[in-house]
Amino acid sequence: MRKFVTEKGLVLPLDRANVDTDYIIPKQFLKSIKRTGFGKNLFDEARYLDKGLPDQECTGRPLNPDFVANQPRYKGASILLARENFGCGSSREHAPWALDDYGIRCIIAPSYADIFFNNCVKNGILLIVLDEKIVDQMFRETEATPGYTLSVDLAAQTLTKSDGSVIKFDVETSRKHILLNGLDDIGLTMQHADAIKTFEQQHQLKAPWLFG
């Protein structure tokens, strides 16, 4: 997995609560058997005015001028600022794949849905949880300041604004470790293969019907 160490980037504010995974990547794009190429269909229904089809070239499609990501000032953003319960709904990992493919490396929100949270960690995307008031403040600052950027330092657990002020954030030690080192978690679990085998044998003795 790719590492996440630091990121300095433009902030894209998506002012909408309960953004669900259907909104992040509509289902017609889930027909793909690949992991890549979803970025052009990120937020497809909000981003374009027509209905998107899988395998369609997106460059000529009519853009929704009201959709925030279509404003030139947010082009190239790598940090997404979002509202509560971001990523609710289905377990589709296509949602983080689409965010990643679009170039989003880090998300800041007051809360996330938890399957989505896990899926992001598996893809090297850092999710930062901040108090709603701080997020509110950041929305105001982003909207008021064209070119608003933030610097994220995972090791130090800090967000630095361009005026030099610093916000600390919490991150679980295990997730931090995995992200900083870009660890392959199947490989990590395989280090416990003996424990899994031992468990399995005892489990089978207790509940043989599970192994019929």
């Binding site: 377990s91 990992e93 983080p96 399957i115 896990n118 899926n119 978690d185 199947i186 679990t189 899994i196």
Partner: peptide
């Protein structure tokens, strides 16, 4: 019983386990 993402599908296939909190 709960839902998982595709990376975890691969993880369960390979290890019969999940890392959970």
């Amino acid at each position: 019983a709960h839902g998982i993402g595709t990376s975890e599908v691969e993880h369960v296939l390979a290890t019969q386990c999940l890392v959970q909190k």
